[in-house]
Amino acid sequence: MFEEAQLYSPVTQTESGAVVVQLGADHPGFKDPEYRERRNEIAASALAWVPGTDPQPVAYTDAENEVWQLISAELAVKHERYAVREFLEAKAAVGLPEDRVPQLVEVTAGVAPLTGFAYHPAPGLVELRQFYGSLAAGVFHSTQYVRHPSQPLYTPEPDIIHEVIGHGNMLGSPRFAALKRAAGEATLRVESEAALQAIADVFWFTMEFGVMYEDGELRAYGAGILSSYGEIEEFRSMEIRPLDIAAMATVDYDITSYQPVLFGAASFGELEEVAGGFFASVDDDTPERLGITVAA
């Protein structure tokens, strides 16, 4: 289980209307005024976005494009080695650029014809109910900033590399997209915070950090692993448990570090049966039936 408050970089507005991204003291860009101003600028653009219109394009710098290019090249090799076939096929179908950061309208243009999903800009953390609930309508809320260039292979928070290389490529797959929509529909169906948190936790251990056995080999499909240069090399050494909804909804985890416990599906069919079945059936009484307790 994970509390939203643990996440980095809340976005605030001053009395004068200025948008400020609050970076943690151990964030790589904390002492970089130029990076901090850049983050504020991109967040302000997202806050000013009017639903129903195209997101304002971000004029990415050469340095930001270089980070994207480096990560894309590094991950391309690792995806071939570690990603499940469904992800690789979806990635090829979406066809994201590898030499520059794509605009969100380009990401939408890649995934919408395949699964109907659209990307909407977010200044930072989106509240759980809004983020997951929007998936039911085929909307993915995405940040647009790029991680700090001093540590291109690491980010303490989800940036556009995670949102697009991880989730965007997944959303080229109708099977993955169906699971995300099911999580969204479940969110709209439940009212209790305990049920909502259970949905978020199961999503975390599947769509974010899911692994699966394929042809006798453990491979990754979760966006968090497949967008992480370091974690993708480490997931096979973690504790791998069988899919278990109650366990996924109660294991403590920290978004800012590698996940020591992962849940491995025996096949894509099992993932759809277990996680998809949970999303399709969860209601406000589910946490009690599973013995899940949520701290007050």
Results as ranks from 00 to 15, higher is better:
His162Met: 12
Val164Ser: 01
Val164Tyr: 03
Val164Asn: 01
Ile165Arg: 04
Ile165Phe: 07
Ile165Ala: 10
Gly166Phe: 07
His167Ala: 00
Gly168Ser: 03
Gly168Thr: 00
Asn169Arg: 06
Leu171Arg: 00
Ser173Leu: 05
Pro174Ile: 06
Arg175Gly: 05
Arg175Trp: 14
Arg175Asn: 14
Ala177Arg: 01
Ala177Phe: 11
Ala177Leu: 05
Ala178Trp: 05
Ala178Phe: 10
Lys180Leu: 13
Lys180Cys: 14
Ala182Gln: 09
Ala182Asn: 08
Ala183Trp: 06
Ala183Ser: 15
Gly184Ala: 14
Glu185Val: 13
Ala186Ile: 10
Thr187Ser: 15
Leu188Asp: 08
Leu188Tyr: 10
Leu188Ala: 09
Leu188Phe: 04
Arg189Phe: 11
Arg189Val: 12
Val190Asp: 12
Val190Tyr: 08
Val190Asn: 11
Ser192Ala: 13
Ser192Met: 06
Ser192Lys: 10
Glu193Met: 15
Glu193Lys: 15
Ala194Asn: 11
Ala194Ile: 14
Ala195Cys: 14
Gln197Asp: 14
Ala198Met: 15
Ala200Pro: 08
Asp201Phe: 11
Asp201Pro: 08
Phe203Glu: 07
Trp204Gly: 06
Phe205Ile: 02
Phe205Glu: 02
Met207Asp: 04
Met207Ala: 14
Glu208Val: 05
Phe209Ile: 00
Gly210Pro: 06
Val211Ile: 11
Met212Asn: 04
Met212Ser: 09
Tyr213Glu: 15
Tyr213Ala: 13
Tyr213Leu: 12
Glu214Phe: 02
Asp215Trp: 05
Asp215Met: 01
Asp215Ala: 10
Gly216Asp: 05
Gly216His: 09
Ala220Pro: 14
Tyr221Phe: 14
Tyr221Met: 03
Gly222Gln: 05
Ala223Arg: 02
Ala223His: 02
Gly224Asp: 02
Ile225Pro: 02
Ile225Gln: 02
Leu226Glu: 02
Leu226His: 05
Ser227Lys: 05
Ser227Asp: 06
Ser227Asn: 07
Ser227Glu: 06
Ser227Thr: 08
Ser227Gln: 04
Ser228Phe: 06
Gly230Ile: 00
Gly230His: 12
Glu231Asn: 06
Glu231Tyr: 07
Glu231Asp: 12
Ile232Phe: 00
Glu233Met: 07
Glu233Gly: 00
Glu233Gln: 06
Glu234Ser: 08
Glu234Gln: 13
Glu234Pro: 04
Phe235Lys: 01
Phe235Leu: 01
Arg236Leu: 03
Arg236Pro: 00
Ser237Phe: 08
Met238Pro: 00
Met238Arg: 15
Glu239Tyr: 01
Glu239Phe: 07
Ile240Gln: 14
Leu243Val: 13
Leu243Pro: 10
Asp244Trp: 14
Ile245Phe: 11
Ile245Asp: 06
Met248Glu: 01
Ala249Met: 13
Ala249Arg: 03
Thr250Trp: 09
Val251Thr: 15
Tyr253Gly: 02
Tyr253Leu: 05
Asp254Leu: 09
Asp254Tyr: 09
Asp254Lys: 00
Ser257Asn: 04
Ser257Lys: 14
Gln259Glu: 01
Pro260Leu: 10
Pro260His: 08
Val261Gln: 07
Val261Tyr: 04
Leu262Ile: 06
Ala265Asn: 10
Ala265Tyr: 07
Ala265Ile: 03
